[in-house]
Amino acid sequence: MSTSDHSKKELFGYLAQFEDATALYHAAEKVRDKKFRRWDVHTPFPVHGMDHAMGLGKSWLSVLVLVGGVCGSLTALGLQFFTQVSLYPTVVQDKPTNLFTIPAFFPVTFELTILFAAFATVLGLFTIIMLPRWNHPLFNSPLFSKFSNDAFLLHIEARDPKFHHEKTREFLSEVGAARIEEINY
């Protein structure tokens, strides 16, 4: 389907391995200062302070969760008032059903708030980090599969405007990469 020549592989970027979390942390600071944009570090666990080293701000996922929670509260209040007060008032043990019944509606409102907020968290997370995505050029590299064990990796994409075939490679070994690999599509 694609017009490109299948026998010739296209460069996706460089994947560099670092000694440990500290080396990766300092390398990330330098990559950040060089104003690269399409790059990331891959670690077996979230490295403390890496957001700062990469120049990333606070995650904005919490906004979505707030929206989810508010939707949950409104859904629950709507469901209860609509069915209990307007649609079919259920009078049990002579307990009234009207607008002031709200204390009895708190538990369900609370639970649905949590439920909707939790759904917003997980769906928002997957949307922001763009998962599931089972195919990614990085998975072509045997080195990459070590990130989930004990490897500290950094990749810079060839699509980055600052990317240069030789200079970026040199730059990566300057900042302390122990091993550099080319990743192809």
Binding site: D40, M50, L56, S59, L61, S62, I128, I129, L131
Partner: peptide, 21 residues
């Protein structure tokens, strides 16, 4: 695993999601 890549651009939202949950 949904194609998890352990990138810090994933971890930072992941950690926030975990904290919120």
């Amino acid at each position: 695993a949904l194609g998890w890549r352990g990138g810090n651009r994933q971890w930072r939202h992941y950690e926030m999601a975990y904290l919120l949950l």
